[in-house]
Design a protein around this nucleic acid. Sequence first.
DNA 1: TTAATCCCGATTTTTTTAGTCAGGTATATT
DNA 2: AATATACCTGACTAAAAAAATCGGGATTAA
Lengths: 141, 141
Amino acid sequence: MKLSTKGKYGLYAMVYLAQHDGEGPQSLKAIAELGLPDPYLEQLLGSLRRAGLVKTVRGPQGGYQLSKPPQEITMRHIIEAMEGPLSLSECVVEPEHVCPRGSNCKARGVWGYLTDQINGLLDSITLTDMLKQEIKGEIIA
Amino acid sequence: MKLSTKGKYGLYAMVYLAQHDGEGPQSLKAIAELGLPDPYLEQLLGSLRRAGLVKTVRGPQGGYQLSKPPQEITMRHIIEAMEGPLSLSECVVEPEHVCPRGSNCKARGVWGYLTDQINGLLDSITLTDMLKQEIKGEIIA
DNA sequence: TTAATCCCGATTTTTTTAGTCAGGTATATT
DNA sequence: AATATACCTGACTAAAAAAATCGGGATTAA
């Protein structure tokens, strides 16, 4: 179980924007200094924009910035924008999924439970928490 | 963020073995009735055996069975056997990872925190819980 | 008008996942 | 001992997903 680069790069970019919140638009090139391939990063920022997490300014001095305060943006928003909803098993997410294991499959409940718990975790972490390196009063550095 | 079929099939197989615990070895063919391709499943059961979660009996009437009581086998044991340790980012797992973002990368702490939390969740669910469809007193069906 | 900068779709490359297969080993049964 | 059942192993292949690349277009400050 691992995270794709999409999710990681997306988060790095968002942390960068949070660190420069209020300083005006940050260019793609500036963000890519984090060590990310810029044409790829451009794609990813597109996802973040379409998800409503960043807004852009075109033209010279243009760039990307957070579309709302960092304390209102959670890890879940970001990861979900980049990778789609967390799905440990299709049967939890897809409405009319037919499972070869029938209706009394014992795994199904666990997938649902875990999905909820992990989503809850992601919901509970904001960009501000990350900058402060503190979640629910706990130092995470 | 999703789980591979390895993890899923591995769990299905383990649930099956838990349901038939004490009934003697269960053949590959019997387990594959869950709807899994049997030559592939065979591979996966190999991982579970090497991880010490199942033991096998060869020859006629042979098959697979749990190597310890179902309440001692957790989701984490199973998923980890199938997919290796949970790794949201290399920097958390690999000892000498050089990160282009340097030592004050704000994401690192979060990866560590999340990794611990999710591992904790997986630790807390046993095969018995799954059969009972109940985790920490909560019905999950 | 120019240059900086974002936007977008198509394409390619690489990696991982998923699955197959052939031949080998152990063992209960007769 | 012979046989048939069943697990074991490693190499192989195919398909899908991830990770990027690229070329050309649109917007706008200066």
